[in-house]
Simulated assay, not measured.
Amino acid sequence: MCWSLQALLDFIGSLSNLSKLDLTYCESLQALPDSIGGLSNLSALYLSHCLRLKCMPSGIGKLSHLRTLPVCVLGDKNNCSLRELSSLNLEGKLYMKNLENVKNVKEAKEANLKQKQGLETLILSWNLDAYQKPGEASSEKINEDGKNVQEIVEALAVQDRDVDTELIEDVLENLQPHVTLAVLKIEEYLGRVFPRWLMELAVPNLAKLTLKGCMRCEILPQFRLLHNINKLELNTLLRVQCLPALGQMRSLRILKLYVLPGIKCLSSEFYGGDGAFPALEDLDLACMPELEEWSRTAEVLAMYPDDELFLSSLQSGAFPNIDRPEMKFRVDRMISSLPPVLSGVSMPRHRGGDGTDPYSQGSSLKS
């Protein structure tokens, strides 16, 4: 770990017996030498938290012994491309950054992810700011301008990004992982639909799934048919207006719902039937400004439209593992009443304007 390291000397490519190169937390590292393709015995290359590394050089595909590549920073046609992953028998985790640099579907297909049985965790990431038009503020700048969450959501929603929707969708369609994949995260994807392999649940062994910043997608998969998922996070999905029957996910222990401005009501469809959420232990909810009610059978708790967090009845049969709930929430005004089932529950209330970030922890309901 060397925070000040900006570049590696070109001679490193002559270290033909080097088997492991760990550059984790080299936050100032801006480039890797082209000679890195000469490390013929390299089996592990660690680049996590190399924040200034914009791309990797071509030649990664020559590293025939490479098994561990937790981060792959894609570049343009003269740098590392997806096709270089084709012959690599990668294992463990693969975080593919800058997928906006993939300019044709063939390149995505040649990555051959579907045959990489050793991969357990896959993160597929685009950079939203790569699509911004001249004069538009970057997503990072929007977040730094002191706006509240609602203002940030509105600013992101109205941006007219220069996007080849068909290309983006086709690229993701051809990045289908092996059926044994356990952890999947898709972030800042600007297609309008999720890939067929996710919608048709062709990744049956998923245990953890995160969909974050997929701001143009409207329809979500039927998660309840993914029987092994124990953690699900839905974050900054601006056009989703209806959630599927999450209550019927029999293994789900952790559910995080953040920045879903299109959700106005959590009704019976959210539960999907009796005995909902049989394994749930941790429920986090935040920044759903249009939500007005969360119903369970006859009980409905109406909320102020500007309440970011909300409470619900815990009627018999739902949330059986949340025995002594502690609810933490930050709102602009006190909620006037609670349903009877929550009487006696300790619920510390935090107001905005106290110098703390009102959205830093979301809202939580946990045992």
Score class of each variant (00 low, 15 high):
125 S>L: 11
158 V>F: 02
142 I>H: 05
124 L>E: 06
154 E>K: 15
141 K>G: 00
148 N>S: 05
160 D>K: 10
145 D>E: 15
144 E>Q: 09
127 N>K: 14
133 K>D: 03
134 P>Y: 12
130 A>N: 09
125 S>D: 12
129 D>T: 08
159 Q>M: 06
133 K>C: 06
129 D>V: 10
121 T>E: 07
131 Y>I: 13
137 A>W: 05
122 L>I: 04
120 E>C: 06
132 Q>H: 08
139 S>T: 12
148 N>W: 03
146 G>V: 13
118 G>T: 06
135 G>H: 10
135 G>Y: 11
143 N>M: 11
129 D>G: 04
126 W>Y: 13
119 L>K: 03
158 V>D: 05
150 Q>H: 13
153 V>P: 00
127 N>T: 14
157 A>S: 02
137 A>M: 14
157 A>E: 01
135 G>F: 14
156 L>T: 05
126 W>D: 07
134 P>R: 13
149 V>N: 04
155 A>Y: 03
129 D>A: 09
136 E>A: 12
137 A>K: 14
119 L>F: 06
159 Q>D: 01
119 L>P: 00
131 Y>E: 04
137 A>H: 07
139 S>E: 07
133 K>A: 06
133 K>G: 02
154 E>S: 05
147 K>M: 13
120 E>T: 10
127 N>I: 15
129 D>I: 12
153 V>Q: 05
153 V>G: 00
161 R>F: 08
144 E>G: 02
162 D>L: 02
163 V>F: 01
131 Y>T: 05
123 I>W: 07
158 V>A: 01
137 A>V: 09
130 A>D: 12
138 S>K: 08
141 K>R: 12
152 I>A: 01
124 L>G: 05
121 T>C: 09
138 S>R: 08
161 R>H: 06
162 D>Q: 02
140 E>C: 07
118 G>R: 02
150 Q>N: 14
152 I>V: 15
125 S>V: 09
159 Q>W: 03
133 K>P: 00
120 E>L: 08
158 V>H: 12
138 S>C: 06
137 A>E: 11
122 L>A: 03
139 S>D: 06
121 T>W: 07
156 L>I: 15
139 S>P: 00
134 P>V: 10
137 A>F: 08
123 I>H: 11
144 E>L: 12
130 A>M: 14
131 Y>W: 15
